[in-house]
Nucleic acid binder design. Structure first.
Length: 577
DNA sequence: GCCGTTTTCGGCCCGACTGTTTTCAGTCG
């Protein structure tokens, strides 16, 4: 199995956890955690960067020492420093830190006194009521730990997909907005940064009377329990286990609080350091010079005082956005209303729920100029994939409908399968009759990296390969991406003028933000498609726009922001086409 | 261990809440 960036990051996080339990210098620990964040956020595989002898210290939070440690990991598969610490501190203790309410000091105390090593042992100890024997631990703490263990098991470390989080959070936002005196209310956190999944929900409320907000919060119907409650800050757990933190601030602090709770943590740290350099102090109440607030009511004012233009939340990840904002070189991010058509949609001809006509009318009702009908090719039998004969019949139906419908153009297309050997599941003479050919992988997901890469590169040699559909076949929280040399494939795609799909399906979001950013850097055009299997699915496009924005994409990078004539020019041109 | 618009040493984000403490440490975000 290839060493993924996430695996390498995990080693450094674990090293940080164990050192923290040992009581090491907290800044050294933070340095390892910062480096882990950087590694996770890199678009290119670290293994390949090392193979190409890239200077890793060019990346933030990676210095000489950590660069060498990373090279060691790539060479040996092990982090020597971690192995060394593991001789003194049982590595399983890091898992105990996953229990809410238990930090490094608590883990060390429990281990020193009871010699426990696992969450299960802690659970047994707590059930027997023995944790309270330890000074610093009481009955309430013991109960809180049992609760924390329960939650750990229940949620299995899973983050909530953004679309699900929306369904939970928006009604609660509306519930709180009804409190008298609420001036502004926003959902912050990774939700506002539009990450594909969220760990919890952060709601920031501008209100003179915070107590009234908290009073209404705890009366919300969907609450499982109240984890903590104050007059300015409270936490509740919703019925499905999602945690919601609510923070009430005065109106003059709303921008600062919104910024603070939007994060990312790394972005906040960068801004606070910037404030310190200017003899200012930034906290969730405002930007202060001594005791005087110089900004705080709104975000643009704070950024301005720091010498920056306002940074859209999707860019706040300490990935170069502060430097870009300083030079006023931020991208003009794509907006949802810039999308003028969908190039990947299914109908009842294969596994869609709605008819060809319903889909066409639905797209027109959304204001689209065009819609590509791309039912499955024959390989996907379970989805009633189309044979060349049925595809021909469908083409006639599309042409007939297109002629009878004003205000939208229907494009004849197909979602062709990239077979295990890199051939496509329809012959070239059939593909030659189509306007749009989306090529996707649905089967043989477990091929080796070499096989998978060769497979896609071979497929791309086919002149009718126009769009690479959901390129890595990943599914959020459910299926890892296929093992493939993405960078190599994107270079090939750029060369042939193949557009890369950013699937807006919440379960796919494929390519993801880092992949889409890499695609742009390699010179590829992107296309935001819903892969709609119903009329309602067409509305999912905004989730794809979110991903593209996180990839720093502008409207110009996305081919389906163009009118039909320009779109055709932007697509790969097959021979004679 | 990283980093640099008071740079190669000396900082490194900071406030709220909880439980346990009898004045604050630990944890969280």
């Amino acid at each position: 199995m290839t060493l993924r960036n996430r695996d390498i990051a995990t080693l450094f996080k674990r090293l940080a956890d164990l050192l923290e339990i040992e009581g090491e210098n907290p800044f050294r620990i933070q340095a390892y955690r910062n480096a882990a964040e950087t590694i996770e956020g890199l678009a290119a595989p670290v293994t390949e960067l090392v193979a190409a002898e890239t200077d890793l210290t060019q990346y933030s939070h990676i210095g000489k020492d950590i660069a060498e440690k990373i090279e060691g990991v790539v060479a040996t598969g092990r982090l020597a420093a971690l192995d060394e610490v593991a001789q003194r501190v049982p590595p399983e203790l890091a898992d105990l830190m996953g229990v809410k309410g238990l930090g490094p000091k608590g883990v060390k105390a429990l281990h020193d006194h009871f010699h426990i090593r696992s969450v299960d042992e802690l659970e047994q100890l707590a059930r027997e009521g023995r944790v309270r024997e330890l000074s610093g631990f009481g009955a309430k703490k013991e109960a809180a730990l049992l609760e924390g263990i329960h939650e750990l098991h229940a949620r299995q470390y899973q983050r909530t997909p953004l679309a699900e989080a929306e369904a939970q959070a928006e009604p609660l936002r509306a519930w709180l907005a009804a409190v008298d005196g609420v001036e502004c209310i926003e959902i912050a956190g990774s939700y506002r940064r539009r990450r594909e999944t969220v760990g919890d929900i952060d709601i920031v409320v501008a209100c003179a009377d915070g107590a009234a907000v908290m009073e209404r919060l705890v009366r919300y119907d969907g609450i499982e329990r109240v984890a903590s409650r104050g007059t300015t800050r409270s936490s509740v757990i919703l019925a499905d286990g999602l945690q919601v933190d609510v923070r009430a601030v005065p109106t003059e602090s709303f921008g600062a609080a919104l910024m603070y709770f939007t994060g990312s943590k790394q972005h906040n740290v960068a801004l606070r350091q910037r404030a310190i350099q200017r003899d200012l102090k930034l906290n969730e109440y405002g930007l202060f010079q001594g005791d005087d607030a110089v900004a705080g009511a709104d975000e643009p004012g704070i950024y301005r005082q720091l010498g920056l233009v306002w940074i859209p939340p999707e860019l706040r990840g300490d990935r170069g956005e502060v430097e870009a904002a300083e030079r006023d070189h931020l991208p003009a991010l794509i907006e949802a209303d810039a999308i003028r058509g969908d190039l990947h949609a299914h109908t009842t001809w294969s596994d869609g729920r709605d008819t060809l006509e319903d889909m066409a009318r639905g797209a027109r009702a959304r204001g689209y100029e065009y819609l590509a009908i791309t039912d499955h090719g024959p390989r996907v039998r379970i989805a009633n994939g189309l044979s060349p004969e049925r595809l021909q019949t469908q083409a006639e139906a599309i042409a007939e409908l297109d002629a009878s419908l004003d205000g939208i153009t229907l494009l004849k297309g197909c979602e062709v399968d990239i077979l295990a050997d890199g051939t496509l599941d329809l012959p070239d003479e059939v593909l030659a009759t189509l306007d749009i050919v989306v090529c996707s992988i649905h089967y043989n997901l477990r091929q080796s990296r070499q096989e998978q890469t060769d497979r896609v590169l071979r497929a791309m040699e086919n002149p009718y390969f126009m769009i690479w559909g959901h390129p890595t076949a990943r599914e959020v929280n459910r299926r890892e991406p296929i093992d493939i040399d993405l960078e190599r494939c994107l270079e090939e795609a750029a060369e042939h003028g193949i557009a890369i799909e950013v699937s807006a399906q919440p379960k796919r979001l494929d390519l993801n933000d880092a992949g889409a950013r890499l695609a742009r850097e390699k010179g590829c055009r992107l296309v935001i498609n819903t892969d709609a299997h119903s009329v309602g699915n067409l509305d999912l496009v905004r989730h794809g726009v979110d991903q593209a924005r996180r990839a720093w994409a502008e409207a110009e990078d996305i081919i389906n922001t163009r009118g039909l004539v320009e779109l055709r020019k932007a697509l790969r041109t097959p021979p004679g086409g």
